[in-house]
Simulated scan of single mutants.
Amino acid sequence: MPLERFKKHKPPPVLCALAAVALCALAPPAFAQAAWHPDRPVTLVVPYAAGGGTDATARAVSKQLGMIWGQPVIVENMPGADGLIGTRRVMEAKPDGYTLVLQVPSIVITKYTPGLKGIDPLARLEPVTAVSMSPAAVVVSAKLPVKTFGEFVQYCKTAAQPCSLATGESLARVSAKQLAAEAGLPNLIVVNYRGTGAIVTDMIANNVNMAFTGITAALPHYKAGTLKILATQGPRRAAALPEVPTTAEAGYPQFQSVTWFGLFAPKGTPPNVTQGIVAALHEAVKDADVRKTIASAGAEPVVNTPAAFAAQVREESERMAALVKLYPLE
């Protein structure tokens, strides 16, 4: 399929204007004097395997939150079922602020995933706030003889063996089907993994060729020269990777995706509790070590109001619903 086909695509709407998000992160919250804080340990569920971007983000803020609250914030990894196992624990928890989940945009298409019986986690969760934001990236093994996204597509069209694409969650599987259909790669092999850590390991060995993934897990290996990041998927170049073009610059504007790492609480959690959590996070991301950890992962700290975060979630839900209609999960 000619490259011109891609240039005709209009970029999908951005989750929210990053400039506005930055202002949200800097502006003091109206509820800064919120009285709620925990009087016993808080559990922060990460519904994916250790080593990925969600896990790194959780661990970046949990220690500081614990210091602010004077109570431990325990990060608990519960991978499985595209994040539903860990998320379900929070869906069924008491809505009191003591059990939270850190999720990513793939949560919006859980209800479309075969085998999960149409369960919609968003119907039983309360959006609390974004914690950080990072553009997703097009990552390939450094062993491949390609330097650009376009070269990778051409390589896959002529390679003796079909190219393979690793996915760790449903959103990436939708993007994989979109790439296969729109780039003319009908033989693209999609390999499903339980976590980003295993994807990175296999890409370094070139057991799998490529992945759409967050910058977090790939960045240190990119710097070490064992992985290549061909493009980032935000509306502008990533601050951590100014030398890497965006997918739009590479001629593939439809592959635009910004990953938010967001906190959710059980549905029915009182507003004063969610506001207390946001107020504490606002303080947590001011910490130099927290900001350094988030920045080293290629992300930017972002803390917004429950209403603003809920709007982000709705926007992503609408965008992905349209894509799933074109490229249904199987």
Rank of each mutant, 00 (worst) to 15 (best):
Val303Glu: 02
Lys177Trp: 05
Pro253Lys: 01
Gln254Arg: 10
Thr293Trp: 02
Thr201Asp: 13
Ile277Thr: 03
Asn187Cys: 05
Val191Gln: 06
Ala240Val: 14
Ala218Trp: 10
Thr201Tyr: 10
Gly197Asp: 10
Gln254Trp: 11
Ala299Ser: 05
Val258Met: 03
Phe255Tyr: 14
Ile277Asn: 00
Val258Cys: 03
Val285Tyr: 03
Pro253Met: 04
Gly197Leu: 14
Ala211Ser: 15
Ile204Pro: 01
Val244Gly: 01
Ser296Asp: 09
Ala299Tyr: 01
Ala224Asn: 13
Ile229Pro: 01
Thr247Leu: 12
Ile199Lys: 06
Arg291Ala: 11
Ile189Arg: 05
Thr247Pro: 13
Tyr193Leu: 07
Gly195Gln: 08
Met203Thr: 12
Ala297Tyr: 02
Ala198Asp: 14
Gly262Lys: 05
Thr201Val: 14
Val208Ala: 00
Ala297Asp: 02
Lys286Val: 07
Pro245Gln: 01
Asn192Leu: 11
Val200Cys: 06
Thr293Gln: 10
Ala284Pro: 08
Thr216Phe: 15
Arg291Phe: 06
Val208Thr: 12
Thr269Lys: 02
Arg194Ala: 11
Leu188Ala: 06
Ala218Tyr: 13
Thr293Ala: 14
Asp289Cys: 05
Gln254His: 08
Ala248Leu: 04
Ala181Arg: 09
Pro242Glu: 03
Arg236Gly: 07
Ile204Arg: 02
Gly262Thr: 10
Phe264Arg: 02
Gly197Arg: 14
Leu188Pro: 07
Met210Cys: 13
Lys228Glu: 10
Ala288Asp: 05
Ala295Val: 10
Leu241Ala: 03
Thr201Ser: 13
Lys292Met: 07
Thr213Asp: 10
Ile229Asp: 00
Leu241Glu: 01
Thr293Tyr: 01
Tyr252Thr: 09
Phe264Lys: 03
Gly262Arg: 02
Tyr252Met: 07
Lys228Ser: 12
Leu185Lys: 02
Asp289Gln: 14
Asn187Tyr: 06
Ala176Lys: 04
Tyr252Asp: 04
Thr259Val: 14
Ala198His: 09
Ala180Trp: 00
Thr246Cys: 04
Thr232Asn: 00
Met210Lys: 01
Ala297Glu: 03
Gly184Pro: 13
Thr274Met: 06
Lys267His: 12
Thr216Ala: 15
Asn192Glu: 13
Ser175Gln: 08
Ile229Trp: 00
Ala181Ile: 13
Ala238Trp: 06
Ala205Lys: 14
Gly214Ala: 15
Asp287Trp: 13
Ile229Tyr: 00
Glu300Asn: 04
Phe264Cys: 09
Leu219Lys: 08
Pro235His: 02
Val273Asp: 00
Gln178Gly: 06
Val190Thr: 12
Gly268Trp: 15
Val190Lys: 00
Ala295Gln: 04
Arg236Pro: 07
Ala297Leu: 05
Ala180Phe: 00
